[in-house]
Each structure stands twice: as structure tokens, then as C-alpha cells.
Amino acid sequence: MTANGELSPDTFAAFYELLKPFNKTGVDLKPETRFSEDLNFDSLVVMEFVATVEDRFDISVPMNILPDIATIQHLGLAVEKIVKAAKG
């Protein structure tokens, strides 16, 4: 997602909590932290984390956005958009 804009502090805080058990590399989590390069997510971990995010926000994350998601910021903004759309 090349979506611009700021991630809301609430969303980032939620991701911060969700990512704790996934943060095997022990990097400082920031909006610009990258899933592949910084957190070493492989495709199975990616899916496990997506499931966690879906459960937390009670949404469904479509697979077609995955290739555009590189950072926490990207995924967070996408989630915000999905949540907003779900509320109508």
C-alpha cells in the first residue's frame, strides 16, 4: 500500500502489543519497521500474524494487498481502512 498518512497512535499501540511475541529479532518496533528485513517474517509467520491481526480487529485482510505491505505503517493503514469500511 502506497497509502500516505499517519498511523493513529491507537493502531500503532495495538500492533506493538500484537508484534511482541513475533519479535524474535528484538528490534525496536517503529511504524517503519519492515516485516521481512527487520523482523525476518517468512510466509508462514506472515500468515500467522495476519490471523492475529484479524482476530484483534475482527476483520478479514484480503490477500491481494500482501505484496504492497512492507512495514508496520503499511499494514496499520490498511487495517484502519478496512475497519472504517466495515463500519460503513
Binding site: R34, F35, S36, F41, D42, S43, V46, M47, M63, N64, L66, P67, D68, I69, A70, T71, H74, L75
Partner: peptide, 13 residues
């Protein structure tokens, strides 16, 4: 194939 990973747009395309 379908994409299966985060952020690998170029490789997938």
C-alpha cells in the same frame, strides 16, 4: 501463482 508474502511485489510480478 498467487502472492504469499509481505512486500515482495517486484519478485511476484
Amino acid at each position: 501463482p498467487l502472492p504469499t508474502a509481505f512486500g515482495r511485489r517486484e519478485a511476484y510480478v
